[in-house]
Every structure is written in structure tokens, then in C-alpha cells.
Design a protein around this nucleic acid. Structure first.
Length: 718
DNA sequence: AAGTGAGGTCTTTTT
DNA sequence: GACCTCACTT
């Protein structure tokens, strides 16, 4: 294969990017413009032209799925395995570095990875140990605080203690959490990145080695990088390396978890001699869809700017359906999907996208009723299930006795008579001796400094774990896993759980045994680890997929966030209402609103052929009724691209002209001006509930925004 | 120590 | 409407 095979299938803009002289290159790739293709061909170009050996290339993605896809596409294009190339997620690569340089990173060789749930539990424990009030310092917020600091590269000692008392306590929690992790050899996700950054920053020899090796670094979805990932890349690339990044500022939808769109905006400033290229030709959607997407996103101020275009035809207009309520909305979508199916369009070509996961329930019910197969994406993943985590905790603890997170998890699962009281004493001992729970327990056992009954239970537990550890050593992974599960008593424990649930859990445990066995056989051990630590890392870093088997013909249901990167013939965008989309938390602040708009842009550009937007006049959320306005995003689309759907002479689609005309039970409607005896003039914003309990939200000119019980408010139309 | 009922909360998600 | 946490009971 020669270079022409790499370049020939590309359009001019793609070719310019792929064959650009090595240097710092930012490719602004619009939705459906062949982003991954450019990345993959760039790598092939490096190799075919002799610019780089596979060994000298590092390609970074955000998700395991993207990494796997890239790997396989590179192999297909090159017709050979990727060899010494590193292709992985930021976290996967950080992990690999830390395993290789654990001493320089200041980690124990056997460090374990803490997933989000493990981290949450650990933080909650820390808060309790500090005797702080959990309602005043919610573990969720502390977790958020800690991760946000770590994403910024900040350790507790870097933080200003002079702030308000809450911040001060948060720093205390952060510090105590860090101590706990250190003592137990635990590393959370953000810590992987932070440690990897510090490794490069503080070890010039190691940095020099990797700079020398990875002269060619490529990054996918660059707009999603956080501060730390960006800083790490800058260190690695230095002044001489070549950084090739692909991204789309208009598809940056993860700022709430630390992603900084600024990174893409500042790329040219921070990386010397960099060039910016745009990919604007779209190979996915129809002209009308692209026109709508372009018009919508043009409302954002903060962007580099780009216009998608296609050589294909205009296609069908965008359908807009005004539903009476969410059931009606779901029924409409289901009817359309059923009618598509009757013209031989498979279910799998349709996707229903929504803003919040809670919206899926009504849709699922309607699909189920119609007997249409579907698949909801983004539920709980295999390695996140409680039973799987329990089993893995047994395995982990049996090998790494000091792993406190695992100890806490299984000490009383299944119940073995070790309760709060006993744990309190154990934790007290941990605090005094500054050691792990296991050592504290061993000490107590040795000194017999506890009630006999608790002592006996504790001894039994520790003997079990010790026995497991010895038993599994040297055995094949699948067999070890199987034995650990059987000895743990988890199967009986879950058998007692009533209904299908317990049964499903036992099946999952069996599946875990299979997964462990296959993992060892697959020899996917790029990190040169022993099978067991490699498997445990795999479980934490790749929580398993929620993918349906690719051949099943079913409708796809997912949030807009999970839809990023995917494409479907027919896209249904439901819940297009103010408060829901844009979400009410993000309507005040311009930057947040722009992110909501980007999310809408992502949704629209998922569609290959048809796009249907739905909004409901009444929606039940959190068990209460709302009468939302149609989303402003609908109004931001050019009216001539839209064709309102009317069913059986039903209601009008009032979006563009008159606002919402929902008729509510009490004769009040949102948008209506009213007069109140004491508060004066105001406008109805929202209604909730019905009958005598109905409440109405009114924005009064003088008195501000208030919720009133409609029956007593005595509101008069103004 | 384990099981039950009330009350508060509720965006988006990967690693 | 569903889930999680906490206080209370047994």
C-alpha cells in the first residue's frame, strides 16, 4: 500500500489536513465531516511516508469505545496490527504510565483504581470520620469539589485556607481523603491524570524519554480536554513534538465535568507555529438539516465559526409535533416508527433523543405497548453492578489486604454480624494507628480488645479472606474468580433477594467468571501486568459496555449527551421545551445556555435523513405537572425548514407566532397576564398540579416571582 | 444488627 | 415517580 491509497479517498480539505507537514495542527471538524477518518489517515500517512514508526505514535481519545474504533480502523487501513503504537484513553494511558513508573510516581506497585462509586463511599467515610455533618457537607458536593480541584491540577496544599468556613472544611475533607487513598494504595480517576501530569512535570528523565519516543501525538475530541489533560499534552509535546488534534468547539457539551472549550480556542496561542484547518463538508445529513444546524448554532457568540454544507440534496423538511402531554408525544413517535417499519425501514435506523434520562420511561412504555423492540443506552454498566463490585472486592481484598474501600464494601455483605458498632471501633483504631482497616482488625484480634461476639465474627471474616488469598494464588483468572464467588457466600446472599433481581444478579456473577476467563485468554495485556491486576484495572477503567448486540433491530433511546458521535437515519428529538431543554439550570447564564444550544446542535446533526422535533403542552416531571413553553431552540430554526404536524384536525402548533396555548383545568395559562389583590400585576410562568391543589407561578411586576395556590389566589385576567 | 417507614431530592456522564 | 438516606422499631 502506498501513500496514494491513504490520500485518494479523501476530499481536498481532509487531504490537506492528513498530508500537512508535521507540526502543531488543529483540525476543526464539523459534525459528520470525517473527523475520525482524518485522524486515522493521518496516522497511516505518518507511517507510509516514513515520517514515523508505529512505536513513535501516541493517539488519545476520551472513551474506550472511541479508542477501540480507532485501533481497528488503523489496523484495517494499514493491513497490519498497530504494533508499538499507543492508542488509548487519557485515563488508560495515564494508568499505563503509572504502572510503568510507580516508584517515581510515589505509588505502591499494587495501587488499585477507585471508580466514582468507590470514591463517593470513601469520601462519605472520610466526612464521617471527621465528624462533620453530612447534610451540611454532602459527600456528593465534596466529591465534586475534590474532582474539580484535581482536574485543575490542585492538591489540598495549593488551596487557599483563608476562604469561607465551608471551603475550609472542603479542603480538610480533600486532605483527609487524600491521606486515606494514600494509606490504602487507592487512586481515583482524576488522580490518574494528576499523577501522570506530576510524573512528567517532576521527572525530567522520564519526560525526556517519552518526548523522544512520541514525536507524534494525536488527540480526538479535543474540545473535551480539561485543564490537566491539556497541561499534560503541553508537557509531552514540548517545543519539538508534533501535536495533531481534531475537535469541534460547537460540540463541546461537557464543561460541567471540567472540559474546557477554551483549550481549542487557545490552541493556536499555546502551540507554536500551529495551523488551523476546517472540515466543513458534511457527509451525513441532508441540506435542510445542516441549514437548521447552522442557523441554530449561529446564535452562539463564543465559537470559532464554521458552516456545514453538503453536496447532497435538501431532503425532507423537519417535522414539528406539538403534543398534548408526554404520553401523546411518546405515542406520536411510536406511531411514526411503526409506520416507517411498515415501509421496510428498520427499527434500528431510528433514535429517540432526550435531555434527561427520566424522559425514557414514558417512551419505553409506549414502545413496549406497541411491541417495538428498543434499547436504552447509558444505564448501569456491567462492572458497576453491585454484585459484580462485591465479587471483585472479595478478589481485591484477598490479594491486597490494605484496600480499605473493598474491606468496607464486603465486611458485612453477606451479613455476618459485623455492624455499625464494630465498624466504629475499627475505624477508631485506624485513626489511632494510621493504618489500614485490615491491620487495625488484625491488631484488635491479637489484643482481643473487643466483645467476644464481634471478635469471633471478625476473625471468621479475616480467616475467610486470607484463605481466599492463598487459594486463588497462581490459579487461572476464571477459576480464581469462580472460587472467590463461591467461598464468599454472595450467591446465597443474592438468592435470598426476592423476584427476578436476585436471579439476574447470580447470572451476572456467572458472567463475571466467564469474563475473567476470557480476559486472560485474550491476552490484551498491553501494560505488561500480571493477569489479576490487569483484570482489576480493566474492570475499573472499562466499566463494560451497554451496547446492544449490533445485529438486533431495535430503536435506540438515549440522552443527547450519549448521542454525541453517533448517527441515525431518523432522529426524534423529544421534550423540546423551555425548562427541560434548555434545562432550567442553564437558562440564566449565557455560557451555560450556549452549551445547551450546542447540545441541541449535536442532536440535530445526528440525523442522516429525517428529523422530528416534539414538544408537549403539558408535562409531568418529578410527579408534578408543568405547562412549559416550547423551546427557544425551535424558534431559532428558520421557519421555512419546518413543517408542523397536525393529527386528525388536532391542535395548532403555536410555536412561532403566539406562544403556548395550553388550556389548563383552572382557566389559567402560562404567558397570561393577571392581577392579584395584593401583589398586583404579573404574568403566569407555570402551573403545577390540578384541582384544588393546583399551584400557579406568577412573576409579579412589583413583588417578584411567587408560587400561589390557584384556588385561593383569586387571580383575575388583566 | 437488621428491617421498616418517612422525608428530601431530582441534568447531562466517562474514566 | 423513584431513589436514597436517616430515624425508628424489633
Amino acid at each position: 500500500m502506498d501513500v496514494s491509497a491513504v490520500l485518494d479517498p479523501l476530499n481536498a480539505a481532509q487531504r490537506e489536513a492528513v498530508a500537512a507537514p508535521p507540526g502543531n495542527i488543529l483540525v476543526l471538524a464539523g459534525a459528520g465531516s470525517g473527523k475520525t477518518r482524518v485522524l486515522v489517515h493521518r496516522i497511516a500517512w505518518y507511517i507510509q511516508t516514513g515520517e514515523a514508526q508505529p512505536f513513535g505514535i501516541l493517539a488519545v481519545t476520551f472513551t474506550n469505545k472511541a479508542a477501540a474504533e480507532m485501533r481497528s480502523r488503523i489496523e484495517t487501513l494499514l493491513g497490519q496490527p498497530i504494533g508499538g503504537m499507543w492508542v488509548g484513553t487519557f485515563h488508560g494511558i495515564a494508568h499505563r504510565l503509572l504502572r510503568a513508573h510507580w516508584q517515581d510516581a510515589g505509588l505502591p506497585q499494587s495501587f488499585q483504581i477507585l471508580d466514582s462509586e468507590d470514591q463517593y463511599r470513601t469520601i462519605r467515610r472520610v466526612i464521617r470520620a471527621l465528624e462533620l455533618d453530612e447534610s451540611q457537607y454532602p459527600p456528593r458536593e465534596a466529591q465534586w469539589f475534590i474532582n474539580a480541584r484535581k482536574d485543575e491540577g490542585l492538591r489540598p496544599q495549593h488551596l487557599d485556607e483563608s476562604g469561607d468556613p465551608v471551603a475550609r472544611q472542603m479542603i480538610r475533607i480533600y486532605q483527609a481523603y487524600e491521606d486515606t487513598c494514600k494509606r490504602s494504595g487507592l487512586v481515583d480517576f482524576a488522580e490518574l491524570l494528576l499523577k501522570a501530569h506530576e510524573l512528567f512535570r517532576d521527572n525530567s528523565g522520564i519526560l525526556a524519554h517519552y518526548r523522544q519516543r512520541f514525536r507524534h501525538v494525536l488527540v480526538d475530541e479535543f474540545q473535551d480536554t480539561n485543564t490537566l489533560q491539556y497541561a499534560w499534552l503541553r508537557l509531552l509535546v514540548g517545543g519539538e513534538g508534533a501535536l495533531f488534534v481534531v475537535g469541534d468547539d460547537d460540540q463541546s457539551v461537557y464543561s460541567w465535568r471540567g472540559a474546557r472549550m477554551e483549550n481549542i480556542l487557545q490552541f493556536q496561542r499555546d502551540f507554536s507555529n500551529s495551523i488551523l484547518l476546517r472540515l466543513e463538508q458534511n457527509y451525513r445529513s441532508t441540506g435542510i438539516i445542516l441549514e437548521a444546524a447552522n442557523a441554530l448554532i449561529a446564535n452562539n457568540k463564543t465559537r470559532l465559526g464554521k458552516q456545514l454544507w453538503t453536496e447532497d440534496g435538501e431532503g425532507e423538511k423537519i417535522r414539528l409535533y406539538t403534543a398534548f402531554n408526554e404520553q401523546d408525544e411518546a405515542q406520536f413517535v411510536v406511531d411514526r416508527i411503526a409506520s416507517l417499519r411498515s415501509s421496510d425501514i428498520p427499527y434500528a435506523s431510528s433514535a429517540i433523543l432526550y435531555r434527561v434520562s427520566a424522559q425514557s420511561r414514558v417512551l419505553e412504555e409506549a414502545l413496549m405497548q406497541a411491541g417495538i423492540p428498543y434499547r436504552v443506552y447509558g444505564g448501569q454498566r456491567f462492572y458497576e453492578r453491585a454484585e459484580i463490585k462485591d465479587a471483585l472486592a472479595y478478589l481485591r481484598l484477598s490479594v491486597y489486604h490494605d484496600d480499605d474501600a473493598s474491606f468496607e464494601r464486603i465486611i458485612n455483605t453477606p451479613a455476618r454480624g459485623i455492624g455499625q458498632r464494630t465498624m466504629e471501633e475499627l475505624r477508631g483504631e485506624v485513626k489511632r494507628k494510621q493504618c489500614s482497616l485490615w491491620r487495625a482488625a488484625a491488631g484488635i484480634l491479637h489484643e482481643k480488645s473487643m466483645r467476644a461476639r464481634a471478635l469471633a465474627a471478625l476473625e471468621k471474616f479475616m480467616a475467610l479472606i486470607a484463605r481466599m488469598g492463598q487459594w486463588q494464588a497462581g490459579r487461572p483468572l476464571g477459576e480464581a474468580m469462580d472460587g472467590v464467588i463461591k467461598q464468599s457466600g454472595l450467591i446465597d446472599h443474592y438468592r435470598k433477594e426476592k423476584g427476578e433481581r436476585g436471579l439476574a444478579r447470580i447470572e451476572n456473577l456467572e458472567e463475571l467468571v466467564t469474563a475473567a476467563g476470557e480476559f486472560e485468554l485474550a491476552d490484551r495485556n498491553a501494560e505488561d501486568l500480571e493477569p489479576l491486576p490487569a483484570f482489576l484495572a480493566h474492570a475499573a477503567l472499562e466499566s463494560g459496555d451497554t451496547q446492544a448486540d449490533a445485529f438486533a433491530d431495535c430503536v435506540h433511546l438515549m440522552t443527547l449527551h450519549s448521542a454525541k458521535g453517533l448517527e441515525f437515519q431518523n432522529v426524534f428529538l423529544v421534550g423540546m421545551e423551555e425548562g427541560l431543554f434548555p434545562h432550567q439550570h442553564n437558562t440564566e447564564d449565557v455560557a451555560r445556555l450556549e452549551e445547551e444550544r450546542r447540545l441541541c446542535y449535536v442532536g440535530i446533526t445526528r440525523s442522516q435523513r429525517t428529523l422530528t422535533l416534539c414538544h408537549a403542552l403539558r408535562r409531568r416531571l418529578h410527579g408534578a405537572d408543568f405547562y412549559p413553553q416550547p423551546s427557544r431552540f425551535i424558534r431559532e430554526l428558520p421557519e421555512e425548514l419546518i413543517s408542523p404536524v397536525r393529527l386528525g384536525g388536532g391542535m395548532p402548533a403555536p410555536v412561532f407566532s403566539r406562544g403556548c396555548e395550553a388550556v389548563d383545568p383552572g382557566g389559567l395559562m402560562p404567558g397570561q397576564s393577571v392581577i392579584h389583590a395584593t401583589f398586583g400585576r404579573g404574568v403566569i410562568l407555570n402551573l403545577e398540579g390540578s384541582g384544588s391543589h393546583a399551584r400557579v407561578q406568577v412573576n409579579f411586576e412589583e413583588a417578584g416571582c411567587k408560587w400561589l395556590v390557584a384556588a385561593y389566589a383569586g387571580l383575575q385576567p388583566a
